[in-house]
Amino acid sequence: MTSHRSPLLRQLASEFLGTGLLVTVVVGSGIAAQNLSPADTGLQLLENSTTTAIGLTVLILALGPISGAHFNPVVSAVDWVLGRRHGAGLRPVELAGFVVVQIVGAIGGAVLANAMFEVPAAIATTDRVTTGHLLGEVVATAGLIFLIFALARSDRGAWAAPAVGAYIGAAYWFTSSTSFANPAVTIGRVFSDTFAGIAPTSVLPYIGAQLVGAAVGAALIVLLYPLVGRAAGAAVIPSSISSTS
């Protein structure tokens, strides 16, 4: 964990921009995949997942030194929970700010993707709730949380960008839900009635499954890395840009 952190306003701007652009990548590549491969759903998913994995990696590398590149309310929440006993991680006011800007950024990212591809503004109609899909969200989120904090605790934060990007890209395929694993992204994808969209009625069940997954991932990381709380604040990667930079 570094001794210098960016001012809160700069961190919030980073989380807003990063989460927004992440949703732009997810939704925009989904729209492009629909246009390029209209008759092949498997190819659409390959195009969408590959672009998302690469885009997420780039965003973590670009913005991680400012805010840690959480781009995800459950990552921020687990960072706060794990760090409380060690005086590390986000403070409550920072957590609240991160969650708000992540959600607002995600909505803006979907709107931006729609605008770029000239897709009419509409609420998504794709109902994604099944027992298998919700289990997939638990698995996807638990794995993501475990990966992020295992890397932070073992001082391998330099690997976080490619590792997290690779994990999300793979989880598109090995989970039935295609790995949303992110409440802000889930909410943002409501605002695009396209390949990547999710109906409003599916949002609360998905977020519930993501919270369960986050709790499972946190429990596993505490079990296997008992002192992980000391690394809170170094997830996804340590923020290292001081107020004079």
Rank of each mutant, 00 (worst) to 15 (best):
D155Y: 04
P226N: 05
F16K: 02
F71N: 09
G28M: 02
V74W: 02
A88C: 10
I107G: 07
V99L: 05
I103Q: 04
P162M: 09
R91F: 03
V111G: 09
Y206T: 13
L22E: 06
H4W: 04
A124N: 14
R84F: 07
R5G: 10
T24S: 14
H4F: 09
G64F: 01
H4C: 06
G165Y: 01
M116A: 10
V74Q: 09
Y225F: 15
T201E: 15
T194H: 04
A219E: 15
L12Q: 10
E47V: 09
H133C: 07
A170M: 07
T194C: 09
V104M: 08
A199F: 01
L220Y: 00
S3Y: 05
F71R: 02
A53I: 02
S67K: 00
A62Y: 10
R156D: 13
A181V: 14
Q102W: 01
S239Y: 00
S177A: 15
E15C: 00
G108V: 13
T2L: 10
S179N: 13
G197L: 03
A124L: 06
S192T: 11
M116W: 12
V138E: 02
G42S: 12
W159E: 11
S154C: 09
S37T: 07
L36E: 14
S14P: 03
A96E: 10
I60W: 00
A69G: 05
G197W: 00
V81L: 15
T141D: 04
Y172C: 07
V104Y: 01
L63C: 04
Q11K: 02
P73N: 09
G233V: 04
V74D: 06
G109V: 03
E137I: 04
H4T: 14
G20M: 03
S37E: 08
L151M: 08
R153Y: 08
T19L: 01
G87R: 07
G197S: 05
A77P: 04
S243A: 14
G233N: 01
R84Q: 15
F117W: 08
F195D: 08
V139C: 01
V119W: 02
R156A: 14
A88S: 07
L63D: 10
F146A: 15
L36H: 09
G157M: 06
L151C: 12
A218P: 06
P92I: 05
A106T: 15
S192I: 04
V104E: 09
G217D: 06
S239L: 03
S154Q: 13
A184I: 08
V164T: 08
Y206M: 11
I107Y: 01
T194A: 13
A106V: 15
I54T: 11
G208D: 12
V111S: 11
L151V: 06
N72V: 08
V129D: 06
T57W: 03
F180I: 14
I123L: 15
G97M: 06
L9H: 03
V236H: 03
G217C: 04
F180W: 12
N48K: 12
R91P: 04
V100D: 11
P200A: 05
A115N: 09
T19Q: 01
L17K: 00
